[in-house]
Design a protein around this nucleic acid. Structure first.
Lengths: 171, 171
DNA sequence: ATCCTTGCAAAACGTTTGCACCTCA
DNA sequence: TGAGGTGCAAACGTTTTGCAAGGAT
């Protein structure tokens, strides 16, 4: 809870934006609160105060990469009464509902991406920085996916391009 | 320390095998102990009892993916007197020396691959299974790497193909 | 009224650290 | 002998859990 990941690329992707999702809904009224409620219900989650508010905090700022304690701090800053346990619950429930995507990264903390569509990441491990690989990075990067072994099927392909500051030694 | 990752693909890759490395050395004598000692010295690590024995345990069984506690259990089973702290030290020192490679995976534990060359992994998260993507998987998979952002350069590209058992629902 | 959700504190987990002791060269 | 490796236990940060109280339908 001391130092936070800097996000230096917030590639917008309105297709998976909370507000966009809400707007595309059949019975959208235009009222953010009402729509969010309906939307939460649709993904099978009761629209409780915390989920509504955390959803708002998460999805109202474009695509981002958050950790549990980042979201916790934001929630506190926004005067949302919420416990850390609920933060974790909510992040996992949203992930399960397909609203978030967990990022493959080494290291203690789990990152959640508010853009759950198939795309990949740059990672600067030493600096705790995660950023999207921009535009077309997915198609560009993964050309041919290998067959899954017997009895398994591919769920998704994650690509992490690790970066270091230019000129640094390989240590 | 309770349940362990099953490895179901130990793709052999003698180029990065400890024994092979030792054999390729200039002054290899054929005596595993002597050669390992020399080899450790070459990568800048004092050939202590623990490093020698852990190196042997790690690299004498083909390529594998181990966690700290797996290695700890193996060491205990092999009657190697070692502490968990030393296991962590050794794993990191070996990784830094290029003998091991850490695998990008979500979840608490860190996996170390005894094959440090550029290659990628299948991952079955629910079952704690890691396996190599076989033969040519690297060239096949990553076709075109994006440019690194200003001020950074690419250190490496990790691809993780997540699997689930066939026929399972997306949950 | 019922089930689900939340908050809190405590525990679990993997990992790291501090320091005294020991070992290798 | 001196630099550095090791062991132990305690600290750490993140995440999970158990249970009582609160909220949604």
């Amino acid at each position: 809870m001391q130092h936070h990941t800097k996000i230096f690329s917030d590639v917008p992707n309105s297709a998976v934006d909370w507000r966009a999702k809400v707007d595309f809904r059949e019975h959208a009224t235009g009222c953010p609160w009402h729509d969010c409620k309906t939307f939460l219900r649709d993904v099978g989650l009761r629209p409780t105060r915390q989920r509504l508010l955390l959803g708002w905090v998460l999805f109202s700022k474009g695509n981002r990469h958050v950790t549990a304690d980042m979201l916790y701090d934001e929630a506190l800053a926004a005067r949302i009464p919420v416990s850390l346990a609920t933060i974790y619950n909510t992040l996992h429930q949203f992930t399960q509902a397909g609203l978030l995507r967990e990022i493959s990264a080494t290291g203690g903390r789990a990152y959640f991406d508010t853009n759950p569509s198939e795309h990949h990441h740059f990672l600067v491990e030493d600096e705790d920085v995660v950023m999207d690989i921009p535009e077309g990075g997915h198609e560009l990067l993964v050309d041919k996916v290998p067959d899954a072994p017997e009895g398994y099927e591919i769920e998704r392909v994650d690509v992490v391009v690790r970066l270091r500051r230019s000129g640094e030694q390989i240590r």
